[in-house]
Design a protein around this nucleic acid. Structure first.
Lengths: 304, 304
DNA sequence: ACGCCTCGTGAAAGTAAGTTTCATCCGTGG
DNA sequence: CCACGGATGAAACTTACTTTCACGAGGCGT
């Protein structure tokens, strides 16, 4: 029997809740009670069992099933899932984020975490957006063909420089990083045409790094600058300029956001270089991975 | 020993999928098959019945139930609903980005950049989502009150450890980082009650770091682990466990994504500690900023 | 090398959830 | 007053989910 209305509306992709409230007046009284509960709190309804919901609506399970059919679902489980999905989608974006701003003095940790993560993620995304693939390409070309690569960076940017050096080394490129300015200068003096020097400085004003890059350039090396400020001094001694896009932030989290942006750029270059010579790269990576294997213990298992 | 630490089971609000992929290596083979299906297509899994899913994973219903429990759900229906919600919330990226996947061999640089940036940003966001503020709070408390803080990390995580050490140092905390295992062990032996030891390991299986953390714990120090895998060995020697949420990716960008996630967590802790004592922190920061001032040349003007 | 123990596993029994059937109720119109 | 049809819930029924249990593999200590 069952002359089920089979209302084939646009509930396929549209709002199920909206659809239900539209049908509400056409439903029988008992079904309306169910519908009202569902519309009022979809997420809660999704959590309930059919018996539970029936009881809450002061009706029987059978009616709930009828309701499901009335709104175009196959059965209760399907409705539940659709409701859960619907409810999740209408969750408002976590507002109250202090976008690009300072952290309020009274902020609790959850707020701090949200703010930092938001800014960090933004820095990464925005950096990628404004990064010029053409320039990257040139840099990748240069590094790929280089006899030797020097990476310079001081302070916080030093970490990034070191990271880059390590990455390049892992794929079999001859790369160096020097924590010390004097050593770096000495090294730069030994660079020549065909070599590459990469200088990393967030502000673009770190004189140590600029000096070294200048030296490298004077020797004929191709120089690359990575900075947040496209008009900063470091760009004047660089053949290629790559920029990050960390917003000007306070001392608190700004340092990290810019660091992440820098690391992302470095990673892009790295992957670019690696992609140029798959076979060679893969082999080198496997070898290095194997080297640290003995320093790992078996995976953790939970106890029953 | 190995008093099972409180695994920040903040899956209450964080991404369930992320949570599952983090637990993946700690699951039994049959459960892993289920987990992979679920992670691969949450929406589809939500549609399936338990028998269906079990068949697809080539296992029994019992295993699926066990899997549900393993990831913190009460049973299969709950998992289904959570999956549906999760799937709905994640608005699929508009273009064909290779999410969490490998970079296609023929990819051009623009594509590589987009993919990397997307994954990196995701890692940061998802890490923040699943980070348990309560655990962070405890760690911040411990660090704030610590007489001394040791930060351990090897290889890639070493950079992060070093970064954390530097940050803490900048705000006047007594913090150390040791690139060398033996030195680190020696240092750990000198820790005592009230001190804090932080061990960083993406996989959670780096024996060097685990050893040192174990030593620190034996001496009465409060131990903190930062890893991507909540059930990994390192968590067994940690009083507090903080997890990152970098998806399992290929060697190419995975390393960087996890690095960024780690840095974000470190930054959150740092800001948390700094926020506890504003005045003292600010003074220290100003002093350190001034110290490097002479190494800067004229300020870089930003492009308009 | 042996046996013990633990853990992972699926078959099957058991329970709960969802679905169908059907008798009843109630209002309506002949 | 009775016939009719829709709405409704009790109960039978089916399917889905959960628990129990026994088996087998692999590790560990003797």
């Amino acid at each position: 029997m069952a002359k089920s209305p089979k209302i084939s509306a646009s509930h396929e992709h549209g709002g199920l809740i909206v659809h239900i409230s539209g049908l509400l007046p056409s439903l029988s009284p008992a079904e309306q009670r169910v519908a009202r509960l569902v519309v009022a709190d979809p997420a809660d309804a999704a959590r309930r069992t059919i018996t539970d919901l029936a009881t809450a609506a002061e009706t029987s399970e059978a009616t709930v099933i009828r309701f499901c059919r009335s709104v175009g679902m196959d059965g209760y489980p399907q409705l539940r899932i659709r409701l859960a999905a619907e409810a999740a989608r209408r969750v408002e974006p976590p507002d109250a984020r202090v976008v690009g701003g300072d952290i309020p003095p009274g902020a609790d940790l959850a707020q701090i975490i949200a703010t930092i993560a938001f800014n960090d993620a933004r820095a990464v995304e925005e950096t990628a957006e404004q990064l010029d693939p053409a320039v990257c390409e040139q840099v990748v070309e240069a590094i790929g063909a280089a006899g030797r690569i020097d990476v310079y960076g001081a302070g916080a940017s030093g970490f990034v420089a070191s990271d880059f050096q390590q990455k390049l080394h892992r794929i079999g490129r001859i790369a160096f990083y020097f924590p010390d300015v004097h050593t770096a200068l000495t090294s730069a003096a030994l660079l020549g045409r065909g070599d590459v020097a990469v200088g990393i400085s967030h502000t673009g004003t770190t004189s140590d790094v600029i000096e070294v890059l200048e030296q490298a350039r004077a020797r004929g090396a191709t120089t690359v600058a990575l900075t947040n400020f496209p008009r900063s001094p470091i760009t004047e001694v660089a053949d290629h300029v790559l920029t990050t896009a960390a917003r000007e932030t306070t001392y608190r989290s700004g340092a990290t956001a810019s660091r992440l942006a820098q690391l992302t750029v470095v990673d892009c270059l790295f992957v670019g270089v690696a992609a140029r010579s798959r076979a060679r790269t893969k082999k080198a990576l496997e070898a290095t991975a194997q080297a640290v294997q003995s320093h790992r213990v078996g995976p953790g298992r939970r106890r029953g």
